[in-house]
Nucleic acid binder design. Sequence first.
RNA 1: GCCCCCGUAGCUCAGUAGGAUAGAGCGUCGGUUUCCUAAACCGCAGGCCACAGGUUCGAAUCCUGUCGGGGGUACCA
Length: 570
Amino acid sequence: MNRFKEHISRQLAKATSLPNADFMNTLVIPPKDDWGDYGWPCFSLAKTMRMAPPKIASELSQKITSDDYIENVSSEGPYINFTLRKNVVIDDVCRKIFAEAENYGSSDLGNGRRVILEYSSPNIAKPMSIGHLRATILGAALKRIYEYLGYDVVSINHLGDWGTQFGKLVLAYRKWADPEAMKIDPIKELFRIYVQLHEEAEQDKTLEDEARTIFRKLEQGDPEIKKIWNDFIDLSWKEFDRIYAILGVKFDSVAGESFYQDKIDDIVKLLEDKKLSTESQGALIVPLDDYKLEPLLLKKKDGSTLYATRDLAAAVYRHDEYDFDKMIYVVGVAQSLHFKQFFKVLELAGFDWVKNCQHVDFGWVKLGSEMMSTRKGNIVFVQDVLDSSIDKASRIMAESKFELENAEEISSQVGIGAIIFANLSVKRQTDVSFDWEKILDFNGYSGPYLQYAHARLCSVLRKHKGEPHVEADYGLLDLPEEYKLARMLLDYPEKVADAAAHNEPYIISAYLLELVGLFSTYYQKYKSARDKILSDDDKLRAAKVNLTYCIKTVVGSGLSLLGLKAPEKM
RNA sequence: GCCCCCGUAGCUCAGUAGGAUAGAGCGUCGGUUUCCUAAACCGCAGGCCACAGGUUCGAAUCCUGUCGGGGGUACCA
């Protein structure tokens, strides 16, 4: 992937006479820049060579000579360090980026293999929570990353549109819904009565039974209940459509839980035939004691289904329908046990493709130190978050010295960018506290920081006038930051692949922050007529402009993978 | 009770298929705009990587235990 690393690995293989050893993945980055670009620790050879690591490093460094790529080989204690020819690296990476432009970093790694990505999956008749927002942003980023790597991605929104919660909602709706409030803001009114139901159910346990009865009737097709349910779905879509449009998220399929209703019997029967299910306390379960797991519940004692049943039916259906190579569920960490149980049952049922299914979990979004809970009513509304952020961006923009004709569009891009980036800048398993001040802080390492740097890159290129052309004397670029920037650009394809391998878009986020931070330093450090990017030396200027163009290209590519717009002015 | 995750700077987080001196941002303090966008940049300060053992050439990273926090654990999703 990185021809310089490949080259060094080959040299090491030759020098050690170990053609099959994996040097590629054991190369490290020396802690000091002037020690070299890559280093290799020699400890692993100490036993077989019966020699002290520093001695090995020293001998190997003399065996490997400089060549077209390698400028110098040295040893530093037990490490053998390689310094690359700087002009070759810069020349190489710039030409590659010019050739591939906005496709730099993409590949055919996936080779058309099909990946199913399930994400977002909000609940009908409830306001979309920040947790669902995180799932949506994360899933959408993964979809773009996998596609960039040549996978055939099918994104599925597994809508929470079925289950006992609808019994509760219909019950609460009949009891307390205010028709006026339902006209003004139906989702908030439904949310209000849903919370009320949970509060009253604490005192009055019969409410839960009533709710279960209503859901059972819904499952049996009661027309009146079904109509209310359908109305709820329509109301919800008005909100979802708006949010998805703002975020630029689309799905290939929106088969919700209810979609699998007529496919449940088959899977239940299959599990019965395979003698996997059994009756217990009136419910139908699959015992998993042998695997140290809690049993998976297929049916409640009243015969109605549970989400695990629907997940089983969904998985089988999707395999038949899409013949996937891999299926990824982007769902919160709270459901880890559920996925373990449900994957285990698929395995026991003989579906060996379950080994290609993966729960890609993510941490909680907490409100202060509290868990957000729709039932308890302590949640933050996605719409409010997006609106506040856009508003903040437009206030900052109003103070800008730039007069932008499309200021509204840009503040929207920046405000939304801040929210998206806040969700993608930490490892997905990390819990995050929702903090208004932080999420609306556009200073420091944030989405707007990246977008701002991109705008500045564009601004320089605009002032240069004339299109950058690949031919330039890159050897003229002799500032240390210029070489470091080129080195970082070289790493981009590897970072994209890593992000997919770990299902961690933050790998790209962290990379972009580092790249852009380095550029900002470079940009502000060199201001003299000769050293600045738009240098008064034409030849030097051509090379600097080209490097700038390459950085802009990579930043633009990374931002679009994450789902942020990259405005050219802001 | 059992299972899973987490504990790194005042705060929020990186660094964990073991590698050379543990890094950012925010916050504090102090600098930088007749100069390619100051939503920026530079500098100062800030650490017993929860604690105790172990594994080995080497541990923030792997193992065991303790303490602390969170989540899950049969008719919610």
